[in-house]
Write a protein that binds this DNA or RNA. Structure first.
Lengths: 211, 211
DNA sequence: GTTACAGTGTGACCGTTGGTCATTATTTGA
DNA sequence: TCAAATAATGACCAACGGTCACACTGTAAC
C-alpha cells in the first residue's frame, strides 16, 4: 500500500511544517503575538488544517516543549556519565543552558510551557506528558547527585532538600539569560553561566555548613 | 473649591477600584483569562472608563507591579539595617519571598511583569518606571553586600558577579513556589524558602572556593 | 462501473476579546 | 443662561482562536 504510506508520511511532514513554522515565528515575536493565521501562512496550509493536528494553539507549544526536552535529554545521555560527579554536573548544566542561549525561540517555548497556569489548561494527556518529561530530568540529575553523596562530595541529606537551591538557581538562570542579560554578548552570557554553575555546585557542596 | 477636590478624589478612588478589582480577579484566574469587561463589572464602572486611567490592559498590570514594589521596598527599609549582614540578608529575602507566598495574585503580577516581552510592549515611561524600581532593589541589596565584602564575610570580587548566583536562585525560587511547590503546605513552603536562602548565602560566602 | 465511505484540506464563519469614540451628563466660569 | 470643559459610557470595530459544512481523493464492496 504505497499510497497509504505516502499519505501518512505527508500527514506527519505537515505536522513538522506546522511546528517549524511556529518555532520560526517565535524568533521575532513572543508567543501571544504569534497567531494561528501566521503559522498557517508560513507552513503554507489552511488554518483549519492546523486543528487536524493540534487541539489548541497551546498544544502546539506543548509539543514544541516536549520535542525540545527529548532533544536535550538525548544530548545529556550522550555525555560521558563516568567522569567525576562535579565535572559531569558542570557539563550537564552547561549543555542545558546552552540550549537556552541558542535562541529566543527555545527560551520562549520553555518559559511559557513551564507555568502552572499554562499546564492546567492543557488536556490531561498533554499534562501528563509534560510532567513525565520533567520527571525524566529529575531522575537523571537525582541519580548523579546521589552518587555524589555516596562519594562524600555532597552532604548526606534528602536529595530534594539538597537540590532545591540549585534547582531554583537553574530556573532563575534561564529567566535571567533573556531578561536582565538579554542585551549581553555571548561571552558575557557564558561568563554568567559559568559563574552560576560554580555557585550552584558550591552551594550544594557546602550546604551543611552553618553560617 | 470643595467640589473640584472631590472630583479629583473620586477620580483617584476609581483608579484604586480598578486596580483592586483586577487584583481580586487574579486570585482565581490567570492574567490572560481576566478580561477588561470583568474588571469593569467588578469595579462597577463602564468599560470605557478604564481607558481613562490606563492606556492598555497591560498598563494595569504594570501599575500593580509598581505599587507592589513600593510596598515591598518600604517594608524592607523598615527592617533594622544595623544587624549583622547575614542576618539582615536573611530577613530581607524572607520578607520578599513572604510577599510571593502571600497570594497567587501578587505572584502572577510579578511573574508577568518581569518578562522582557511584556516590558517591551509598555510605553517608554512605564518601561522606565519599571526599570527604576528594579534598580532600587539592586542598590538596596548592593549596599548591604558591599558591606559584607568590607567585613570579610563575602569574597572580594565584582558585586555583580558575586550576586549573579543568588539573584538567579531568588528568581527561580519565586517561580518554583507557584509551580513545583504550588500544592505544598505553608510549612513546606517555609522550609523550602529557608533552605534556598541558606543555599544562597553559602553560595556567596564560599564563591571563591575551588572545587 | 457505480456507490458508499473514511480520511484530509480548507476558508467562510462565529463568539469573544482589547481597544475606540461619538454621545451624554455634569460642573465651571462669564 | 449659555458655552466650554471634563469625564462616564456602551455601541461599535478589528483581530483573534476555534468550528464546521463542504470538497476532494483514494478504498472497498457489489
Amino acid at each position: 500500500m504505497g499510497i497509504q504510506e505516502r499519505r501518512e508520511r505527508d500527514f506527519l511532514r505537515r505536522e513538522r511544517d506546522i511546528l517549524d513554522a511556529a518555532l520560526g515565528l517565535l524568533d521575532h515575536d513572543d508567543w501571544q503575538s504569534v497567531t494561528i493565521a501566521q503559522i498557517a501562512t508560513k507552513a503554507e496550509i489552511g488554518k483549519g488544517t492546523i486543528y487536524k493536528h493540534f487541539a489548541t494553539k497551546e498544544e502546539i507549544y506543548a509539543r514544541l516543549s516536549l520535542d525540545f526536552g527529548d532533544e536535550m535529554l538525548a544530548a545529556m545521555r550522550r555525555l560521558d556519565h563516568n567522569q567525576p560527579v562535579l565535572d559531569l554536573l558542570r557539563a550537564l548544566m552547561r549543555l542545558a543552558l546552552k540550549y537556552h542561549v541558542r535562541g529566543m525561540r527555545y527560551h520562549r517555548v520553555l518559559m511559557f510551557c513551564r507555568a502552572l497556569d499554562f499546564r492546567r489548561r492543557l488536556s490531561p494527556e498533554a499534562q501528563k506528558a509534560m510532567d513525565d518529561k520533567d520527571m525524566e530530568f529529575d531522575t537523571l540529575f537525582g541519580t548523579i547527585i546521589e552518587k555524589g553523596i555516596e562519594e562524600g562530595i555532597f552532604p548526606r541529606m534528602p536529595i530534594e532538600k539538597l537540590t532545591w537551591g540549585a534547582h531554583a538557581a537553574f530556573e532563575g538562570t534561564t529567566l535571567m539569560l533573556w531578561n536582565e542579560l538579554a542585551g549581553a554578548t555571548d561571552e558575557q552570557k557564558q561568563e554568567f553561566i559559568d559563574t552560576v554553575i560554580h555557585f550552584m555546585l558550591v552551594g550544594m557542596v557546602y550546604q551543611d555548613r552553618k553560617l
